[in-house]
């Protein structure tokens, strides 16, 4: 694997050390080590089935839900090794939010969707909840479109609005990291560019990791790019470098569309 050495002073948010992952007997991730920088956008690219989603789901331990899945190695979020046995995954997932490929709002009102997380985590104050809803909807660039229909069903929104609602819902829990797994693959170009703008805005306050199969998207929004192939991290570096001067032949082939 080839990685750049970053400039001095870049803080690391997620540190992965020699991570191996199996689904049953099949190894899906092989010996991955990488440092993901804080307050930046990191894109995961690579042909489908190469393990991008699987790797992403290691950061909030969503893979725990799959019984056949076994993980070896260490992942540090901040200072904490999240695969240590005394880690509470519930607490971890408050720190590491996730947005899924298919928008999946709850069948409740827009307001209730956002208030869901804070309420369960103990916020009872109505004023406080109102302001959380407003703030996060503003942060997700959705407030102007829905401020007068907070009580209408979230499922009435368009796909792009639903996805921004899901981002707002994630923000409402006040995470440090936001994971997005191909969040725009089901959306039209206009919604896609809205979400891209939003991500650029959000990286000031959050560390963002996004899986995408869209090269242009990776080039447009990300600061760093990781290229995966067959469960291995083939190349990782600053996005500009990966796209302009890839060091690996397979990365170049993929980026220039020769396969995948």
């Amino acid at each position: 694997m080839v990685t750049d050495t970053f400039a001095e002073g870049i803080e690391t948010e997620i540190t992965v050390m020699e991570l191996n992952l199996w689904y049953g007997a099949k190894q899906a991730l092989k010996d991955i080590s990488v440092d993901i920088p804080k307050n930046s956008i990191t894109a995961f690219i690579g042909p489908s089935g190469c393990g991008k989603s699987t790797f992403l789901r290691c950061f909030n331990r969503m893979n725990d839900l799959i019984k056949s899945c076994r993980v070896e190695g260490d992942v540090l979020v901040g200072e904490d090794n999240i695969y240590e046995s005394n880690v509470d995954v519930v607490e971890l997932r408050k720190r590491v939010g996730m947005v899924f490929q298919k928008p999946n709002p709850f069948p409740m009102s827009i307001y209730e969707n956002i208030a869901y997380g804070p309420r369960i985590h103990g916020e009872k104050n109505k004023e406080k909840l109102n302001s959380i809803v407003e703030e996060t909807l503003k942060a997700a660039a959705l407030w102007d479109e829905v401020s007068d229909q907070l009580d209408s069903p979230a499922l009435d929104l368009s796909g792009g609005q639903q996805q921004r609602l899901c981002i707002a819902r994630t923000l409402a829990v006040k995470p440090e990291i936001i994971l997005l797994d191909e969040p725009c693959s089901a959306l039209d170009p206009i919604s896609t560019s809205k979400i891209e703008d939003l991500l650029m805005e959000l990286k000031k306050d959050y560390t963002i990791v996004i899986v995408t199969h869209n090269m242009q998207q990776a080039a447009r929004v990300s600061d760093y790019t990781a290229y995966f192939l067959l469960g291995e991290l083939t190349e990782f570096g600053e996005t500009r470098q990966i796209f302009e001067m890839p060091r690996e032949k397979s990365t170049e082939d993929y980026i220039t569309g020769r396969f995948g």
């Binding site: 839900l65 899924f100 829990v173």
Partner: peptide
């Protein structure tokens, strides 16, 4: 109940 809704909730740090 769609599995995606359970995932969404769990991902918010809900038990």
């Amino acid at each position: 109940v769609p599995p995606g809704l359970r995932e969404a909730s769990l991902a918010l740090g809900v038990t």
